[in-house]
Amino acid sequence: MKEWITGRNPVYECLRVGRRHFFRLQLAKGVEQKGRIPEILTLAKTARLNVEWVDRDALEEYSDNPQGVALQASEYPYADLQAIFDLAKKKGEPLFMLILDQIQDPQNMGTLIRSAEVFGVHGMVIPAHRSAGVTPAVVNASSGASEHLLIAPGNLAQAIDAVKEQNGWVIGLDMDSSATPLSQTNLKGNLAIVVGSEGEGLRRLVREKCDLITYIPMRGKVASLNAATAGSIVLQAAAAVR
């Protein structure tokens, strides 16, 4: 299957990383030759990818804000769980993973992917069903960070068991009277952080599989943070002690 990636940073990162196959590159006629555009053209030349100059309106068929560029590429190349473990070992670092339990909003998914990549996560696990996949909208929301990150679809309970076999500590993020405040949670060592869905949080089986549930204390009048913001805060806290 083929899909269209739009936006200057997403297209640039796709071409720079080179994990996909590329078929067509379209740029809007008259687009200014500055910022990412010259870099995209250089990468396209290296990839022997011809540039098609098209009317700007034609690009808007692919997304609402293509920023004058669209890349036709193969679908996102998912990884497997073992590849994530192998990457941590190759780097000689404690395992650092993010597990998403039925995150369905593409913007939240993209934000969490971007945060995971920025904070040095080795890889992510998402459910094979009832979850946003790495679609062009998610690639765009992640600003292309998805192309750098290993993302494995699969059964979350089995993935958690596999993390524990790696001597990993699995910490779920949720609001609960019995949860441990983030400031009192040990985030060192081999670690997987589990973030629940936007509306319902962690599913019962996934929650029961976690070694510990943590929460972010809040002082304001707003009841809660969205999944992407809360997950990003915990990732930053974990990255700070690695």
Rank of each mutant, 00 (worst) to 15 (best):
E13K: 13
E13G: 09
C14G: 14
C14S: 15
C14W: 04
C14V: 06
L15F: 12
H21I: 09
H21K: 15
F23C: 05
R24V: 10
L25E: 10
L25H: 12
Q26S: 13
A28Q: 07
K29W: 06
K29T: 07
G30K: 07
G30I: 06
K34V: 10
R36M: 14
P38Q: 12
I40C: 08
K45C: 07
K45V: 07
T46D: 14
T46P: 02
A47P: 00
V51H: 02
E52F: 13
V54M: 11
D55H: 09
L59I: 11
E61T: 14
E61C: 10
Y62W: 15
D64E: 15
D64S: 14
N65C: 08
P66R: 04
P66W: 06
Q67G: 10
Q67T: 09
A70H: 03
L71D: 09
S74V: 07
E75K: 04
Y76W: 05
A79N: 05
A79K: 02
A79W: 03
A83D: 13
I84H: 00
D86C: 03
K91H: 15
G92Y: 12
G92V: 12
E93Y: 08
M97Y: 00
M97V: 01
L98A: 09
Q102Y: 10
Q104S: 13
Q104D: 06
D105Q: 14
Q107T: 03
N108W: 04
M109V: 09
L112A: 03
S115F: 00
S115Q: 02
S115Y: 00
A116D: 07
F119T: 10
G120K: 12
G123V: 02
G123F: 00
G123W: 00
I126P: 05
P127K: 05
A128Y: 05
A128W: 05
R130M: 10
R130W: 09
A132V: 11
G133L: 11
G133T: 10
V134M: 01
V134K: 00
V134Q: 01
V134R: 01
T135W: 01
T135I: 01
P136K: 10
A137T: 10
A141T: 03
A141M: 04
S143W: 13
S143H: 13
G144D: 07
G144Y: 08
A145I: 05
